[in-house]
Structures are given as C-alpha cells and as structure tokens.
Design a protein around this nucleic acid. Sequence first.
DNA 1: TCTTGAAAGTGACGTAACGTCATTTTATAT
DNA 2: ATATAAAATGACGTTACGTCACTTTCAAGA
Lengths: 254, 254
Amino acid sequence: MISIKEVTKQTGVTVRTMRHYDQIGLLTPAGKTEGGHRLYGEKELKKLQEIQFLKSLGFSLKKIEEMTGNVDHDWYSGLQRQLNYIIQEKEKLTEMEQMVKGVMNQFTLEGKVDMQHIQQLIHFSQQNKFKREEFLQQQFKEDKEKLFDLLPNVNSGDPDTLEWVALLAQIKKHMAKGIEAVEVQRIIRRILEKDQELFAGNEELSNAFWEVRKSQEKSQAAGLYPIEQGVLEFVEKATEYYLTKEAENLGGES
Amino acid sequence: MISIKEVTKQTGVTVRTMRHYDQIGLLTPAGKTEGGHRLYGEKELKKLQEIQFLKSLGFSLKKIEEMTGNVDHDWYSGLQRQLNYIIQEKEKLTEMEQMVKGVMNQFTLEGKVDMQHIQQLIHFSQQNKFKREEFLQQQFKEDKEKLFDLLPNVNSGDPDTLEWVALLAQIKKHMAKGIEAVEVQRIIRRILEKDQELFAGNEELSNAFWEVRKSQEKSQAAGLYPIEQGVLEFVEKATEYYLTKEAENLGGES
DNA sequence: TCTTGAAAGTGACGTAACGTCATTTTATAT
DNA sequence: ATATAAAATGACGTTACGTCACTTTCAAGA
C-alpha cells in the first residue's frame, strides 16, 4: 500500500487526476488511512497504467471505464471505432491546414486577405475533396495520379507553389511595361521552364493544365491557385510573343 | 435590417450561436426592436462570415475577436501559429493512429491485449517520436515546413524579396542533383538576371550585396533574411559553373 | 381588435478532464 | 509538542455552444 504521492512519482500523473478518477469511480483507492488519505496497491497501479495507455489512444474516460470495467467487453470494435474517429479528426485537421496555407499564400501574394478570395477558398475547400476527384477523373483519366502530385495546389506550401506565386507577383509588378519588356520576357521564360519541368514534356498534360487555368470554375474545381483573369491573359500574350521570338532566333541561328 | 432567423437561414448558424456571440461581445446586433428582438444588417452578416471562416481555420473565438477587432492586427503570425498548432495536433493523431493500429494487430494476432506488449508499443512510439524530431532537425527539415517559417521575413509584400525566397527554396529542393543539373542552372540564370535588374550592372553594389548575405549577423542587421551557409556556397559554385559554361558558348558562337 | 401559434427572449445546467486556488485536516520529523 | 509537509475537500474556470424550461413579442387571420 503506497501513498498518493508515491503513485504520482511512479506514474507521472498528478494528485488532482487521482482524485478525479476516484470521484468519477474510474479508479478507487484500495484503502484509506484513519485520517482518510488514499492508499493504493499493485492492482491499482496496473489499472492506472492501463488507463494511461488507453488515454494515449485517445479514448475518453467514459469509454475507458466501460472497457476496463467489463472483462468481456468487445475491445476490437472499440478500437475500430477509435481508429475511424482518429482518421476523421486527422482529415479535419488536414483541411484546416490546407485552408491556412491557402490564406498564407494569398497573403504573401497580395499582402492582405480579402473576403472575395476567401469566399472562393471556402467554397471550394468545402466541395474540394469531392469535386476535385470527380473532376480529375473525367478530365485527365490516366494521368490522374501524376497530376494529383504535380499540380501546384493552392493549399500546399511546397517550394514550387511558392515560386508560382512569386512569378505571378513579378508579372503583376511588371505588367505595366507591356509584354515585350525584358523583365517580362525573362519571367515568361522561367514560367515555361517550370512548366516543362513540371510536366516533363507531356504536352497534353501541359495543355490541359493551362486550359484549366483559363477557366475560373475549372481552376476552382481542380483546387488550383486562382489567378486573376487579367494576369492570365497577359501571361498568354507574353508567352505567344516569347515563342515567336524564340522561333525567329532559332530560325536565324540554324 | 433582418431578423435573427433570416441570418440563420442565410448563413447556417443557429440562433443559440448568435446569442452566444452577442453575449461574449464578438458580434452584437445592429439594433433591436421595441420588444428586444435582435436585428442585423449587412455589416454584421459580413463579419459573421469572417468569423465562420476563421473558425474553419480552427481559431478560437477569443483569437477571432482579437483578429477582427484590431484592424492592424498581425494576421500573418497568427496564421503561422495556427499552422504550427494544427501540425502538432496532426502529429498527435498520427501517433494515436499508429498505436491503435499496433494494438489491433496485436489483438488479431494473439486474441488479447497484454500489458507487456503494450509497454513495448509505448516505448517504441516514444522513441520514434524522438528520432523523428532529431531527424527532422539535422536533416534540412524538408523545405516544406520550413518555408512557412521563412515567409514572414518576406512578407514585406515586396514581390522581389518573395522571388528571392522562392528561388532559394528551389535551390534547396534541387541541391542534391549537383551544380550541373539543368534545373539548378536555370535557377542560377534567373538569379543572375534578378541580380542584374536589381543593381543595373553596378558590380560593386552587387558584390557588397552578396558579401552581406554571406554573413548571418550582417544579414539580419540589414533586414535581409539569413541564408544558410550551405545553400550560399552551393549557389556560388553553381554560379561559377554557369558563367564558365556561358563563356564557352559565347566563345564558340562569336 | 383580439386571438393564437410561431418566433424570440432570458436564464441555467451540461459537456471533458482536469488546473488552480482557498481552506482545513492529517501525517511526520524534530 | 510543534512545525511543516502532504492530503483532503470544495468550488470555480475552461470551450462553444446544445438543450431544456418558462416568458414575452411578433405577425397574421377572425
């Protein structure tokens, strides 16, 4: 029979917790001193460890009581439920993570958070999971999985998305100078390079990608970073210009 | 001015929630009828949507009040904190998931759960946690997560700084491929272009700039965000390589 | 205008798992 | 015997509302 303090030393739980467990009847002391101090034995220690373990699996005290109470309780289905629950919670958190990252990207790009973009974010983050899969299936069929990994998703924080955002910011900065400006053309070149790296020469995929980008709705459905129409059109024109120039140069050289 | 029921119809929140927000002062009605019924206007509806959005990011009502209250509140650091929090929670859940799966396996295998195995499981998962952290720290932390730590320095809203960060992130991503890799060389070209645009050919200034970047302390003093030594050295070497190659090409062409 | 049913109002308790006082009693070492 | 540490009890606080229970107001029909 050991004192409550010994228990806390050996197991790391607090005195308050022991009292709590006593109160809710989850773990009652083996005995008491004349003065009413709680005393615990080996059996209680073991049960306490069990409780702690179950807690680390995320079970509530109520469920734990059920499980440790009934000897022949159906542990397995409890575990299954718990697993499902955990997975659900994780999904929720993942969604949150995506949203937060999306907002952060937006913030980085525009320096502020405006509700219109946020509406978009909310809108498709709600329908995202569903629509995105559906969309990718009919749109890209075979390459679906590839694309899924490749697409610079709005919500991801990877270096590629970052650079897309950066490049678009650059475009916006230099837009006033027109599509022929050196700065603009350099950015375009970089964009094309990235495009190439991303799709590794798979032209169909690349075309599909830009097709999607041209349409706000499709973009949203695919979970891509929403680009303003104006910027997008500018990029297209500048790209055309870049490609014709490049053709000329190559033509001249050969 | 619309009634509380209209609000619930349009936004999906419950009446109780509206009352709650009123009570804690998060969202007070625009006015009341003679009888004391709450009335809301457009402004309140917008704020309510903001609140719902922030909630979907997992912020507490208290934090939301701070954020919607102060106009010039530092949103970005709030988002960052939130992201860290979310990631932590996700990690916890992942641990749980693994533990639960472990127990289920054990159960399937032996038809029971005994504490000895469980002890092992706990021990194991603790160790793994430790090792993972260690691993993440010494490994260059898989850029992804680090990027968002990096961004605040960038968040001056300056598109150029943003692109610098993006380019360095790209360098880190491709570093393992060596200085001669196409991807690396392209990035280097872009870096040199930006360098040129920035200093307009003033070589002294450019040199000074990179000198500063080489020193952690000076960097910070100058308000630049510090670049890791390894990355910096890599950039230098890759740049050398790029320049010699370019010289060769020019030599061959002329 | 009166009636009436729906809508809205105001408390107040419950939730999960303890943390954190404040106050009183018991155990233990000197 | 006394001082001090340890324990006990009780009660409030935390989060974001859900859920009664009971009263008052609103809007429309008779």
